[in-house]
Design a protein around this nucleic acid. Structure first.
Lengths: 208, 208, 208, 208
DNA sequence: GATGAATGAGACTTCATTCAT
DNA sequence: AATGAATGAAGTCTCATTCAT
């Protein structure tokens, strides 16, 4: 579980191959949910025999977990990249919002799976929570940074990180439930405004 | 549990009885998710025979929908009651936050089901979204009220409502995933601060 | 497990019905062995749907055990009946030999199953051993009776009982492996001669 | 285990090596029975890859048969050696009893497999019966020898041989089912007494 | 000679649903 | 109105066997 899943079996040399397979599996799962998705269907989508799945994963659940894992890793990676060029914490928050919205739109399959897992009692919740930790920690890291340099007012970084996460995800999902697309600009503007005005110290609020 | 005929409990005016049954069913569903919960188990929890379920509901799905419906109605009802005494929109928002946290803590079974449904593609999403509409509309109603009387700055009421919803739910769920309880005061304080400072017009911010 | 299996479900009032079902199942199992016999086949032989099997038995193994159980009970019952009219221990032994040969010939399906189980490590051996205990105890009881009244010479009743059991079963099975029938008279004569001459006290040997 | 190529170990003249492999395979089969033992497990126990098994044996069944064969040969060999020094038929019978008990205790894996096969309808019974023939023929040979020289009374040598076989095997197996060891002396004494007194001509009985 | 990834037929088991009582 | 025995479609998983390397 430490190395990337599919590694030994499915990645044909490059990592891109492995990713391709996991995304395909994610798409299959997301289309109909964990239970309604049969292993046959996944095998079909992957273009391999059913037995091959079981040669590489102990069970349907293990494959599922690998998919979720890969998704969490993907989001985290993109978040990290998106904030790399940003200077101030506020700037980073803006980038995070944009990044998450893009990710949710592009990989909505995966995101739906995340959330579903977050609420699932079937597979160990602790494990799933841990999965989101990576991206949550990036956000709370930014909050702490802002607290230190005085750009954020005194707030609990944990709760704040989750709040931002929630704002973005629930807003985005609602759009995806109704329509197919997210009105990026509107959502970004609204969330930025609320979140930054709600968290930035008075002196730092001007540019908003 | 056996004194009342099942039918009257579900359908008759005696609403308390009906609520009891639906909550029991909700608990059964929430424990293991829709698919892993068997009709046998629900019947067992309800103290009736399996056939009886099918006498009153066309299918497992119909029962499930009834449960979700009941939950949505319950939340809506409590939200309405909680804001009835509040005067200002800001006051109402505070009450909403408290109310939702309490509800999530007390009825976390139901809430988990909500969210799962929100991400489900299995049952018609439109229908589910509609279920949450009730409570979302209450929030967006408050936002509109605040916009009109000038206490809120210009924000998209829809997105804002969803954002608040997301802040609360994701924060709360995270606590329920890790621990058993939610640190109410902390969460309320944090969310109030962020959300209200982020949305209230400058003139209205003082008391925070 | 105390009441006779199939009882609640399959016996339609009389015990004969239950027995009929278990014998049918035994026949199915015996034809191809436990593993090669599919639950589908058993259901087919029984004239019920596959699900019905699983409504009454937790698993294929549980059904199998019930069959073995029934067989052990059947043999024990017939042994008891066969010796009821016999006066002397020697007479009883003769009856037992006849009874077992008849049983093996008539219910060779069941007997093959017994032996297979006796050597199986898959299902708990202790349990199976216990199954044979009933009939073994009848034999060792006769031995003890003969020891007390002096008609048998001093032998270990346990080992002696098992020896007789082994003589009969292995002899019979060998015939069933080669041919379809057992030459009753020959086998009875031979075993009686060896066993009784080998165990009877000198004074009691004449009539042989 | 890796020093020698597999092939030479199985097929070459170096018989000791071949014996080692077949015993290992026998142990694997005996632990869980033919069906529950996977080719993977056997390969693992043998320290070779699964494909290697199929390079040397056409199928799982062929390997199994080879194992059974080897076991039958082993017993026969030991029986022959054990009676080589004995003078009288009665003496030989005593040696046979001792030899079989030792073999059963030492190679109980193999013996369990024998018996299972004896009752199996899955693989051709005739073939299996034939396998046991070797050791049975040794016993019936002794009986015939004793008949000729008058030391045994008139009995059917076939049935008698099988009876002895059954006495020993069932007695021994019962001990192995309950405990781990066989009380050699007791079992030998008891079976010797019964069998020889039951079969020896009157004049030859004294020494018992 | 040896390997082990890939296969796919087939097994056991579950469970929503029906219906005679 | 309520029951629960019976059903059978469908799903997960196993494993003997193959074959390219």
């Amino acid at each position: 579980m430490k190395e990337l899943p599919f590694s030994s079996a499915f990645k044909s040399g490059s990592n891109g191959e492995s990713r391709h397979f996991l995304k395909t599996a994610a798409g299959a799962f997301a289309k109909k949910g964990y239970h309604r998705t049969t292993v046959d269907e996944i095998a079909g989508a992957l273009g391999v025999a059913k037995g091959t799945i079981y040669y590489h994963f102990k069970s349907k659940e293990e494959l599922y977990l690998a998919v979720i894992h890969e998704g969490a890793y993907l989001l985290e990676e993109q978040m990290r990249r998106s904030i790399s060029a940003a200077k101030t914490p506020a700037e980073k928050i803006k980038r995070i919002i944009e990044c998450m919205l893009s990710f949710i739109e592009k990989e909505n399959d995966l995101v739906f799976l995340f959330i579903k897992e977050l609420c699932s009692t079937e597979i160990q919740r602790a494990l799933q929570a841990q999965m989101l930790c990576g991206s949550l920690r990036i956000i709370s890291g930014i909050m702490e940074e802002g607290l230190k340099n005085g750009s954020f007012k005194k707030v609990n970084p944990e709760i704040t990180a989750r709040s931002l996460y929630g704002m973005i995800i629930i807003s985005a999902l609602h759009y995806l439930s109704y329509a197919e697309t997210i009105p990026h600009d509107q959502v970004i503007t609204a969330i930025e405004k609320i979140f930054l005005e709600g968290t930035l110290a008075t002196d730092y609020r001007e540019g908003l």
